[in-house]
């Protein structure tokens, strides 16, 4: 079957099988490899993408479910001129990654939070990101990065 959806602002049409997960379609069929798959059980959050603005685990979300929806992956975060999103910049500035395997999912989860709540408290950031595991950093640099991005986005808008 064919599904059509908006991917990072552009319409896509892709042939899938009903069993295909969104992660498989993104990384294998469309070769957008920024989405990372780790636990395959909706625990780690590495595969997080945004569907209609909300974070979903693309490792278990069927591609079929995305039909007609608006999907955003890490590849869709830079602006048209190639400038980094404030979250991407703050993750670099705060050393908020090491191996980088959780980073795409972490940034997209944080984006969903900031889009909904531009000035989150630390407790709100921690609560929102509790479903995204990072095995390298110990989380504090990520907390700082989300805080920094929130401030940057406020100043920007």
């Amino acid at each position: 079957m064919t599904v059509e959806f908006q991917l990072n602002g552009e319409p896509v049409s892709v042939a899938i099988e009903p069993r295909h997960t969104l992660a498989e379609v993104l990384t294998r069929k469309l070769r957008l490899t920024g989405t990372k798959v780790s636990c395959e059980a909706e625990v780690c959050g590495a595969c997080t993408v945004l569907v209609d603005g909300l974070p979903v685990s693309s490792c278990t979300y069927l591609a079929y479910e995305a039909r007609g929806k608006n999907v955003v992956t890490i590849e869709g975060l830079e602006d048209k001129n190639g400038n980094l999103h404030p979250l991407q910049q703050s993750f670099i500035d705060e050393f908020a990654f090491q191996c980088g395997f959780c980073t795409s999912g972490m940034i997209l989860s944080a984006k969903a939070l900031l889009d909904e709540n531009p000035n989150p408290t630390d407790a709100e950031i921690i609560d929102h990101l509790d479903g995204n595991i990072c095995r390298c950093t110990g989380y504090l640099p990520i907390l700082k990065a989300v805080r920094t991005a929130a401030t940057a986005m406020e100043n920007y808008s």
């Binding site: 992956t73 890490i74 975060l77 830079e78 991407q88 910049q89 670099i92 395997f101 980073t103």
Partner: peptide, 15 residues
């Protein structure tokens, strides 16, 4: 800043 920064925050880093 880390040399691998842009690659890792944009999803361009290939594993």
């Amino acid at each position: 800043p880390r040399a691998d920064g842009v690659a890792k925050v944009t999803g361009r880093a290939m594993y």
